[in-house]
C-alpha cells in the first residue's frame, strides 16, 4: 500500500533529513513533508509512524516526550550519531542515482 509509488528508501531519507534541524515530533515532520513536497507524496500521514519507529529500532533516531510550542505533550524524535552517518551515506547514494538517471533520461542520442 503506502509508499509503493515511492522509490525504495526515499521516505526514510526524508524522515532523517527532517530531524537534522533538531528534535521534531511526528506531526511537525508530517507538516514539513507536506510543505516540502507540495502535498504530492501519495501516502497517508499515518505511514510516517511505522517508518519513524523502524528508524528508531535501527538506532538512527532517539525519542523523548516533551512540550510543543503550544505547550502540549508530544513525542520528539532526535537524530543519533548513527542516524547522521546513515543520512550522509544515503544522501550520497541518492545523488549518484538521481544524477545517473537524469543523465540517461536527458540523453540527446538514441541507441
Amino acid at each position: 500500500m503506502a509508499g509503493s509509488d515511492l522509490f525504495t528508501g526515499s521516505l526514510d531519507l526524508l524522515l532523517l533529513k527532517a530531524v537534522t534541524w533538531g528534535p521534531r515530533h511526528g506531526y511537525a515532520i508530517a507538516r514539513w513533508l507536506r510543505e516540502q513536497t507540495g502535498d504530492t507524496l501519495p501516502i497517508h500521514e499515518g505511514v510516517l509512524y511505522p517508518a519513524l519507529h523502524r528508524l528508531e529500532r535501527k538506532g538512527y533516531l532517539d525519542e523523548e516526550w516533551g512540550p510543543t510550542e503550544s505547550n502540549r505533550e508530544a513525542k520528539f524524535y532526535r537524530l543519533t550519531p548513527g542516524g547522521r552517518a546513515a543520512l550522509r551515506a544515503a544522501t550520497a547514494r541518492w545523488r549518484l542515482y538521481a544524477g545517473v538517471m537524469n543523465a540517461a533520461l536527458e540523453a540527446r542520442r538514441g541507441p
Binding site: H44, E45, H53
Partner: peptide, 23 residues
C-alpha cells in the same frame, strides 16, 4: 481520512516499539 488505516498502523508501531524497548 488523512491519517489512513489507523488500526493497522497502530499495531505495526506497537510491535516495533516493543522490540525497541526489549533491545
Amino acid at each position: 481520512d488523512a491519517f489512513g488505516d489507523r488500526s493497522h498502523i497502530e499495531s505495526e508501531v506497537r510491535m516495533l516499539r516493543r522490540e525497541t524497548v526489549r533491545s
